[in-house]
């Protein structure tokens, strides 16, 4: 998967978690938590969905890597490159 594909998948997962999430004004370098009102349970859902789809394990101490959309893509790119 390339960066754009990973980005699309992330937005799709977030939209499944919160169907009212509005991505139009989303700043990819600012925390998702603040912009989309995601809480810690939502991040857990993202982690569990990534594991289900790609068998990808995100250890708890690496959750901060998922803070912004760009940091998510940066973190996932090497892990999902070969898919």
């Amino acid at each position: 998967m390339n960066r754009e594909e990973i980005r699309e998948v992330l937005l799709e997962i977030i939209a499944d978690i919160d169907e009212e999430a509005d991505f139009t004004a989303l700043d990819a370098d600012k925390p998702l938590r603040d912009q989309l009102e995601l809480d810690s349970m939502d991040f857990l859902d993202i982690v569990m969905e990534l594991r289900k789809r790609y068998k990808l394990q995100v250890p708890e101490d690496e959750y901060p890597e998922l803070a912004t959309l760009n940091s998510c893509v940066n973190y996932l790119e090497p892990k999902l490159r070969d898919l």
Binding site: M41, L44, M48, R51, K55, Q57
Partner: peptide, 17 residues
Amino acid sequence: INYGVIVANDVDSWLRD
């Protein structure tokens, strides 16, 4: 209920590993 979700994540992680 929320704790059920949190623990399910741990279990899922364990089962996949």
